[in-house]
Design a protein around this nucleic acid. Structure first.
Length: 291
DNA sequence: CTCGATCCCTGGACGC
DNA sequence: TGCGTCCAGGGATCGA
């Protein structure tokens, strides 16, 4: 559920007080969502969190090398590294005063040099965490497409209109665009009046341009409103977002379209629930015939 | 290349 | 009250 605006909200919150802090120790609970748990335990202590960035739906905590006085010879810990964090469906990353008891689903606790702990909590453990040095990180990031807030209209249109997959699948495909998930895909398709099952290659230039524009507009507004809290999203301060109040399609099955009053429908496209207005977003002709 | 199916996981909704 | 069942969903993976 945390998509680009929610992750951006968390990142902005963490930036208030986390950069500059040094990690003193690591405690782990369940580790099945961590690439290499031992690498976290061995490599995080002694490193300072320099900056926090968002990359698509990922958070990137940039870490310093270990101080020269505390380095272990031949360990290579002088090199900078990063902690990659994906919140999955239900992940939260937030600082808390140490001494507070950990919840049942808190699986990573990083004690900081100011007495707080940076905690990762994730009931469903659909998230991901990985300690990565520069080269593997760079490698990892090449698999992703452009940031929808940075891409220009022409490139967006090209990426969409050269593909035969359905537009909904393309919006969700992180190798095409990084950061868009189910909510903002449906919201932008509703705004652009495009049916989720349309093929990318069948979109007109005008439609692709509109879609790119409304997607950016929606993402920007959602960031201002601190994201959508539809189930349990909370930012780094434990506050819910407000953008769910602005949803025009997502989660509104049976409710009337804000433009034309037709009941919103839900179908499965690309294996995901897709909410749309059957009147404003007319179905494509002659896609997917079965004989 | 694109598709659907399956799995991961747990809480919440719902039916009885 | 309590149990069983189903579903949500991002992403990886596999076979068609």
């Amino acid at each position: 559920m945390p998509e680009l605006p929610e992750v951006e909200t968390v990142v902005r919150g963490l930036r208030q007080s986390i950069p500059g802090r040094t990690i003193l120790s690591v405690r782990l609970g369940k580790t099945d969502f961590i690439d290499d748990p031992v690498a976290l335990e061995e490599n995080l202590p002694g490193r300072r969190i320099e900056t926090i960035e968002r990359f698509g739906k990922f958070m990137l905590l940039r870490l310093s090398g270990v101080d020269s006085a505390k380095r272990i010879p031949d360990k290579g810990d002088a090199e900078p590294a990063s902690l990659l964090v994906h919140l999955g469906m239900t992940g939260q990353l937030a600082p808390s005063p140490s001494g507070q008891p950990c919840g049942k689903h808190t699986h990573v606790c990083l004690t900081l040099d100011d007495g707080r702990e940076l905690r990762y909590t994730d009931p469903r453990r659909f998230g991901r965490m990985a300690y990565l040095t520069e080269t593997p990180l760079a490698q990892e990031l090449t698999a992703f497409g452009v940031d929808p807030l940075e891409v220009n209209a022409a490139e967006f249109a090209t990426r969409i209109r050269t593909r035969t997959a359905r537009i909904k699948a393309l919006l969700l495909d992180q190798s095409v665009l990084r950061g868009v998930g189910n909510i903002y895909a449906d919201e932008s398709l509703w705004r652009a009046k495009i049916h989720p099952a349309r093929l990318g290659i069948r979109l007109t230039e005008k439609e692709a341009e509109t879609l790119g524009k409304v997607l950016q507009d929606i993402l920007r507004k959602a960031i201002v409103m601190r994201g959508s809290s539809i189930s349990d999203f909370l930012d780094a301060d434990g506050q819910p977002g407000e953008y769910q109040r602005r949803h025009r399609a997502y989660g509104r099955e049976g409710e009337s379209c804000y433009r034309c009053r037709t009941p919103i429908r839900r179908i499965i496209v690309a294996g995901r629930s897709s909410y749309f207005c059957p009147k404003c977003q007319p179905a494509p002709r002659r896609v997917k015939r079965r004989t």
